[in-house]
Nucleic acid binder design. Structure first.
Lengths: 125, 125
DNA sequence: ATACTAACTGAAATTAATTCTCATTTAGGA
DNA sequence: TCCTAAATGAGAATTAATTTCAGTTAGTAT
């Protein structure tokens, strides 16, 4: 992959944001690099996700988000403020084998998204 | 909710399909009821999902699907043919409490989608 | 049976997220 | 410096789903 100023700007934005959507990355990059195109942000995010440098999270019922934490983990999403947090779920370790044995389904990966209210929002209103 | 011919047709379609998307429901209903509008299919599906008669599944990276199985369960999705199957995951029972204690996050629900290859597709090509 | 009204419907426009097209530019190797 | 594959910008296109609005209907009240 070529090393372009656009890619560097997107990488910097990813570092400074927490589980951003593509649009949030675009807004952030667009500040210091007004000429960047939204299509370029999407392309760069997809490209580096394919290469395994970041995770591409497909959030049920919302825009995709991108995650710089690479080890296996899952997500909590707040229904009120939309914030996404990481959570580890050791209960699921090794489940691929059980599913393979019981359902004949070869698991490449899985996504677990919890939805509810974050600690901040529980106390609001 | 009113009992319309459109609703009856959508319910019948749901019975005859397995984890259909809204579009698949539309195609099926449209055969015997050519004048039905796609908006009506979406509206009826959302309405009966809100009332708890079916589940509205938000599939990461794909169209939403609808499920007539109501007890808690999760899904396997085949990356090749797109088929979705049910799977139960008792490993996660009671996990809401652990997450609440450790993260202060009050869980309303969670979705777990496994992706990989179904037994049919493993042997194709 | 009739009238009434809130709920429902069809068609088309709209929104949101993402991808695609294509002409132009650029990074980095020869 | 030249060359070319790769990357970019701008905007059109796509996809899934929702909204709008004028007209229709189910089912309750009379």
């Amino acid at each position: 992959m070529k090393n372009t100023v656009q890619k560097t700007a997107v990488m910097n934005a990813l570092m400074s944001l927490d589980h951003p959507t593509a649009d949030e990355v675009y807004d952030c990059v667009h500040n210091e690099f007004p000429s960047i195109s939204k299509a370029t942000v999407y392309r760069i995010l997809n490209r580096i996700a394919e290469e395994g440098e970041i995770l591409h999270l497909r959030i049920p019922g919302g825009a995709d988000r991108f995650d710089t934490t690479l080890c296996t983990h899952h997500h909590l999403q707040c229904n009120r403020c939309g914030k996404v947090c990481d959570v580890s779920v050791p209960e699921l370790e090794g489940i691929e084998k059980r599913i393979k044995d019981e359902n004949g389904f070869s698991i490449a990966g899985y996504r677990l998204v919890f939805s509810g209210l974050c600690s901040d929002c529980i106390f609001k209103k």
